[in-house]
Computed example of a mutant assay.
Amino acid sequence: MNRRLLAGLATATCAAVGLTWWLAIGDESVPVAGTPRGDDARCEKVLDRLPRDLMGESRRSTTNPGTAAWGGKGQVRLRCGLPPTAPSPNQCFRVSGADWVVDEPSLANGVWKAVSYGTDPAVQVRFPGADASGSAWVEVSEALKPLKSTGRRCIDNEDVPLPSPDHH
């Protein structure tokens, strides 16, 4: 055989093997813990509404139904299908009609984690670092619209009735 032909075949074979390896590694699913109701049809609707890019990171495939991840190692993670969140003394905030309860111990570990409040099923989102972009919260909160409301919502001090001065 011609040396040029052999060199060309060798180059093409190496390129094909390299491309296959890169595609396999680049498409590796991010391991995200599943939830009891991750396969709920409402979770599928939430996932369909999530953005392709979040905080400058591309969405990745994940290992379990009802989950989503963005970034090289899935730094941003979302899990749908959790039981509705019980009332909590933790910080609660509202973004685009969705209420979120902060998992305060996660903040000490440099992670911002919150779970939706007043939705069935509930959704947990985890952002790296102690603060997440406001636009990221809006995009994730907008995706929760298909979830059924439990009727619960965040309250603040003005929503809590104070005892009247007549009662001790």
Rank of each mutant, 00 (worst) to 15 (best):
Ser58Thr: 11
Arg37Asn: 12
Lys73His: 11
Cys92Ser: 02
Ala33Ser: 11
Trp70Gly: 03
Val32Gln: 03
Gly26Ala: 14
Leu47Tyr: 05
Leu54Met: 03
Val32Tyr: 05
Leu47Ala: 05
Gly34Ser: 12
Ala24Lys: 13
Ser61Ala: 15
Arg94Cys: 03
Met55Glu: 09
Thr13Ile: 15
Lys45Asp: 11
Gly38Asn: 00
Ala98His: 00
Gly26His: 12
Thr13His: 06
Leu82Thr: 05
Asn64Gln: 12
Asp48Tyr: 08
Leu50Ala: 05
Lys45Gly: 09
Ala98Gln: 02
Val17Glu: 10
Cys80Thr: 05
Ala15Asn: 06
Leu82Pro: 06
Asn90Ser: 13
Gly81Gln: 06
Glu57Ser: 08
Glu44Lys: 07
Val46Ser: 05
Arg79Ala: 12
Asp99Ala: 00
Glu44Tyr: 06
Leu82Asp: 05
Pro36Leu: 12
Ser96Thr: 08
Asp39Asn: 08
Asp99Gln: 00
Gly34Trp: 11
Pro89Phe: 13
Leu82Ala: 06
Leu54Lys: 02
Trp22Ala: 15
Ala98Asn: 01
Ala16Phe: 13
Arg42Pro: 08
Gly56Leu: 03
Met55Ile: 08
Phe93Glu: 02
Lys45Leu: 14
Gly74Ser: 10
Asp53Ser: 13
Thr20Lys: 07
Val46Gln: 04
Cys43Trp: 01
Arg94Ser: 13
Pro51Ile: 07
Leu23Ser: 10
Pro65Asn: 06
Asp39Cys: 02
Val30Ala: 08
Cys92His: 00
Ser29Arg: 13
Ser29Thr: 14
Leu19Trp: 15
Pro87His: 09
Ala68Asp: 03
Leu23Val: 11
Trp70Asn: 02
Trp70Met: 03
Thr63Glu: 03
Thr11Gly: 15
Gln91Cys: 04
Thr85Ser: 11
Cys92Trp: 01
Val76Ala: 05
Cys80Asp: 04
Arg79Cys: 03
Cys14Met: 15
Val32Cys: 04
Leu54Ile: 04
Leu47Trp: 05
Leu50Val: 09
Val76Leu: 12
Gly81Met: 09
Gln91Leu: 11
Ile25Ala: 14
Val30Met: 12
Gly74Asp: 08
Gly26Met: 09
Trp21Asp: 10
Gln75Met: 10
Gly81Leu: 10
Leu23Thr: 10
Ala33Phe: 11
Thr20Tyr: 14
Cys14Tyr: 14
Leu50His: 04
Arg77Cys: 09
Gly38Val: 01
Leu78Asp: 04
Met55Leu: 08
Trp70Pro: 06
Arg42Asp: 13
Asp48Ala: 15
Thr85His: 08
